[in-house]
């Protein structure tokens, strides 16, 4: 079937199998930040934003995102011009193996879009579906709270 989607602001007209999962379609289209961890919606490594909502792309059929807008970590920034959240994850050491980072970043981007001044509880709540086995769940919370402050101050950088 034909799938019309906007990925990171760019229009795509993809030919996909009707029973394909979104994660596979995205990875095949070159968006390798989308990681497959558990394939059953438990770990959050595959999280992408679909029409403003972060969801697990491993348990959504690609056919369900017809005419939707998708944001993956590639759409946030790149090594030369990282998003403030990406920069903050690095600065706070909330990345080690990095496998969970793209999904976690999407979850917290969605949080800050809705709630620019989150509390620690808000951040924990937003990340409740993103497992991270390396860094221990503290550094990423500090990273998000810090990034939120930087964005609030309007420090130079990509929003």
């Amino acid at each position: 079937m034909k799938l019309n989607v906007k990925i990171n602001g760019k229009k795509f007209d993809l030919e996909v199998n009707p029973n394909a999962m979104l994660i596979d379609v995205l990875r095949d289209a070159g968006f390798k930040s989308v990681k497959n961890g558990c394939s059953e919606g438990s770990c959050g490594a595959c999280a992408v934003m679909i029409d403003g909502r972060p969801k697990n792309s491993c348990i959504i059929l690609a056919g369900q995102v017809q005419n939707s807008e998708i944001l993956t970590a590639e759409g946030l920034g790149n090594p030369e011009t990282p998003h403030i959240l990406q920069r903050s994850f690095v600065d706070h050491g909330s990345t080690q193996c990095g496998y969970c980072n793209p999904g976690s970043l999407i979850s917290v981007k969605a949080l800050l879009d809705k709630n620019p001044k989150p509390t620690e509880a808000d951040v924990k709540d937003a990340l409740d579906g993103n497992l991270c086995r390396c860094t221990g769940y503290v550094k990423r919370i500090e990273a998000v709270l810090d990034a939120a402050k930087i964005i609030q101050k309007g420090t130079k950088g990509k929003k």
Partner: peptide
């Protein structure tokens, strides 16, 4: 129910 990512679906 589940997590934020699941509750959104």
């Amino acid at each position: 129910i589940g997590s934020t990512l699941l509750r959104n679906a």
